[in-house]
Design a binder for these strands. Structure first.
Length: 226
DNA sequence: CGGCTGATCGTG
DNA sequence: ACGATCAGCCGA
């Protein structure tokens, strides 16, 4: 596939280092907090897309009632969570959206960080995110017989909420189940790099979203955001 | 801004 | 049957 000149130039001018294995082979809370401000990079059909990570959640293994691995549920779906730190776990939620996590710790310990939100790291990434977000919305517009939206006429749902949720983030960065169970330390097209400096006092904490069934674990402050 | 609803399908 | 969700619509 041809690499666009713009991407080649960006890499030449600015190629921050990729996070190493040791970054991810730590506990899910430490990794979650430290991922804030780092850059998620996906090289797609549209070109390279870079997002600054601004919101994450920790899922803490077989004892965590909020986790897919609660009680030791090791199935075909949850298998990537059991893999070594730095492995992606992308799954389908509500039949139509993807959610992306990065496994932590070593093999056999299913802790992970759910990536919930990013903001574009540069102008070209923002454009590409907008284009990707337009697609499913315009499919619906088409069905309703309405005019499709364009980059010049973005709906409010994209203008104000480009990638601020796990499903929206995956659409904006073209992350699908094709990106599941990938070792992000070695991948040429899907990885995390150093990003902006984040001080401890910039990190806020809150309850995790959408796990009301998790009893006492629903109240743990394992959601972190800038 | 907060609340509500329908959409949609792999998983166990 | 059930979600680690979202867009669009409504009312304040």
């Amino acid at each position: 596939m041809m690499e666009k000149l713009q991407d080649a130039m960006e890499k030449y001018v600015d190629s921050p280092s990729r996070l190493p294995r040791e970054f991810f082979t730590r506990d899910g809370i430490t990794v979650a907090k430290e991922l804030l401000g780092k850059i998620l990079v996906h090289e797609t059909e549209l070109g390279t897309i870079r997002g600054i990570i601004t919101e994450v959640e920790s899922y803490m293994g077989e004892e965590d009632k909020g986790s897919h691995t609660y009680g030791g549920r090791r199935t075909e779906r949850t298998e990537p969570m059991y893999h070594i730190g730095g492995t992606s776990y992308v799954y389908l939620i509500y039949g139509m959206y993807s959610c992306m996590n990065i496994a932590c710790m070593t093999d056999g310990i299913p802790q992970a960080v759910l990536l919930r939100s990013v903001v574009p790291a540069d102008e070209i990434s923002e454009k590409r995110m907008q284009e990707l977000r337009l697609r499913p919305i315009n499919v619906r517009q088409q069905k309703k017989g309405k005019e499709p939206y364009t980059l010049d006429k973005l709906p409010a749902s994209i203008e104000k909420h480009l990638a601020d949720g796990p499903g929206k983030m995956c659409i904006a960065m073209d992350i699908t189940r094709a990106d599941n169970d990938i070792d992000m330390i070695g991948s040429e097209s899907f990885y995390v790099t150093e990003g902006m400096e984040v001080k401890a006092e910039q990190i806020k904490a809150g309850k995790r979203i959408g796990i009301d069934y998790a009893e006492e674990a629903a109240d743990y402050l394992w959601r972190f955001y800038l």
